[in-house]
Design a protein around this nucleic acid. Structure first.
Lengths: 365, 365
DNA sequence: GACGTAGGTCCTATGGAGGCC
DNA sequence: TGGCCTCCATAGGACCTACGT
């Protein structure tokens, strides 16, 4: 009788239902879960269902988890608290897929500090999550604190790791190949410029496996078509200002691009600015393609044709991987959809075969 | 002995520690939790701590939750799956604050469908969350399915509700007043134009309580200074294209703004474009202020001075509210920081007293 | 003052008691 | 008397705590 501050009406429990239906708690449990092996009389079952209904009974999943060792909760850890919001799609995709399977997401963040990852893993395993998704906002190789894992299955998302088999990442190579092919098919084969990285540039921290694949996709495709770029502009980081500077310098050097392959949308934004300042119309005078499908891609004028990172699909895929009984090993590559917009002029006949990204402007407030 | 598929090494339990230390589980429990009322000998305590350490003992929080009725888990429900990522800061702020208090976030989304909210609340209460944050990506009034709540405390985040007392929202009125005051202090008092909504416009779905407050802040401040706008441009939704059209029409009508108050950053982006096309330099020829501190605000040239929605602070505040023993009622207003950038030219003497937003371009990949 | 026992949290899995043919 | 089907009691699962020694 210590119902002083706990004004909560005390959840109705299995015992309550059992009592009202005049059966044992066991019978209630059997009815509420599996119906196979009908071990309860139809009459009792009816009474139980009725009682559960009237009392508004809902099973206590914590207790169930304790008993079954399955919590139906998945952990989601993201590597660092970034200031941009690119990767929130990962969570969203994962969350929706989890919901489909009756699971729910417990999230934790490693705020960059070392030791934080271990702490995050522990916080989740202590709560008996059935599996953990370890996600990065930028593709990279992460090490996981195996000790803190306690045997809980882990899949990497937008990242890879030597410590674990499953990983879901964007198919950068194929995506790059596809969008460059689109550019070439549209006839933009001369004066091709690559903005963001030069092959002559020494390896550095920015050359992650994902960037490498993206570059390979680009170069292989150009090469297959016998196209040789007239210029490569290295810049680090891939920011608006660097894109702007890069293209401005290019123009100052008297090189006028016919097609511009930007390694991400921010660079493209900067490029647009430099081109416009020089009186060159993006989309009209020069074809532009890019990567990521950042928010700004739609806002640009003309809207940018870009290879999107399929964050939501990747998140969903990670959940599937985790929930599959027979684990698939190795990397799962997810297609990068090409958002066909107007920064590349496309001959009518080719155009018929393309599906254009149809973004009505997203409305705000 | 059914360790067939469950290859997991079986977590070490309190009983294991007790056995190794030669004490009862109770003693272990006492040591692992509260130390007050030293009811265990220092010697035993030492042995217990040693044993726990050697075995790598970690308490099973599921079991603890079952017995204490406190899960140290907070639920986070967001209202609808929006395509933009503005509000991910809410989760981030909440998550970080929760972590500080030894809590963790369980997330659920109501995918817009009716009934989904109830389902989400149930999914969380079934798992014994200690409290629920009900967040909206756009400020609005939401009704909560009280039945499914089961007495679990709820606070609204970036939203309000008639069904619940606590709510955390941005202080739109004060934010608007502050940024308009900044504009006026900088001397931009003539040819003021408001872009986004006209007072003559009839009430509609876009006129949420948040927008109303934002508008009131603007108008009251202008009024106090005796400033009367030369034009108000209604547009719905607040998109880049509408901002562009609005300002272009304005210029076509021969009105040349001296100061432009945009109701959000997307409108501002469109305005920039229209101004630039007309040969007018934003920041130089016309001062521009705005709201939201969207990603694009930094990318613009010149970077946009805007009143930021403090998503992270709001998320943190919601957690605090939830965790406070003595609940504070009513709405918690969170300050909107003014990001002072270069779209408003500021006299040197005033400038000294301002803190400028110092955004080095965020680096990508 | 130091410690153990037993009972409570709620659900599930298993073996076994009882009834019927 | 044995076989079979109903149903239920009991024993966990890992922890906390009131009480008793």
């Amino acid at each position: 009788m210590k119902d002083r501050e706990r004004a909560a009406p005390k959840r109705v429990t299995m015992a309550d239902v059992a009592e009202r239906a005049g059966v044992s708690p066991t019978a209630v449990s059997l009815i509420m879960n599996r119906r196979e092996g009908t071990r309860v009389s139809e009459d009792a079952a009816r009474r139980i269902r009725a009682a559960a209904d009237e009392l508004g009974y809902r099973p206590n999943l914590t207790a169930r988890a304790l008993s079954t060792q399955k919590s139906h909760v998945l952990g989601f850890i993201s590597d660092l608290v970034t200031t941009d919001r690119l990767a929130s799609g990962l969570i969203r995709g994962a969350s929706q897929e989890a919901k489909k399977h009756g699971h729910v997401l417990l999230i934790a963040e490693t705020d960059g500090q070392s030791g934080a990852a271990e702490e995050a893993f522990s916080a989740l395993t202590d709560r008996q999550v059935d599996g953990i998704i370890y996600a990065a906002t930028r593709p990279q190789s992460l090490s996981i604190p195996v000790r803190a894992t306690g045997g809980t299955p882990v899949v990497m998302l937008n990242a890879v790791s030597d410590d674990v088999a499953g990983a879901v990442i964007a198919d950068e190579y194929a995506g790059a190949a596809a969008i460059v092919q689109l550019l070439l098919d549209a006839g933009h084969t001369s004066n091709v410029v690559i903005l963001g990285r030069s092959l002559d540039q020494p390896d550095d921290e920015w050359l992650t496996f994902a960037v490498r694949r993206r570059l390979n996709g680009i170069w292989d495709t150009l090469h297959s078509a016998g196209v040789v770029p007239v210029a490569q502009i290295p810049c680090q980081p891939w920011s608006v200002n660097n894109g702007h500077r890069g293209v401005r310098d290019l123009l100052d050097n008297g090189i006028r691009p016919g097609a511009l392959i930007c390694l991400n949308d921010r660079l493209a934004f900067g490029a647009y600015r430099a081109l416009t300042e020089a009186g060159i119309r993006p989309g009209g005078d020069v074809a532009v393609i890019s990567f990521d499908d950042d928010d700004i891609a739609v806002y640009l004028d003309p809207p940018l044709t870009t290879a999107a990172i399929p964050f939501e699909a990747m998140g969903a895929q990670a959940v599937q991987l985790l929930l599959q009984r027979d684990r698939v090993h190795g990397q799962q590559l997810v297609d990068m959809p090409i958002r066909v917009r107007n920064s590349v002029t496309i001959p009518a006949q080719l155009d018929l075969r393309l599906t254009h990204a149809n973004d009505d402007e997203r409305s705000a407030r």
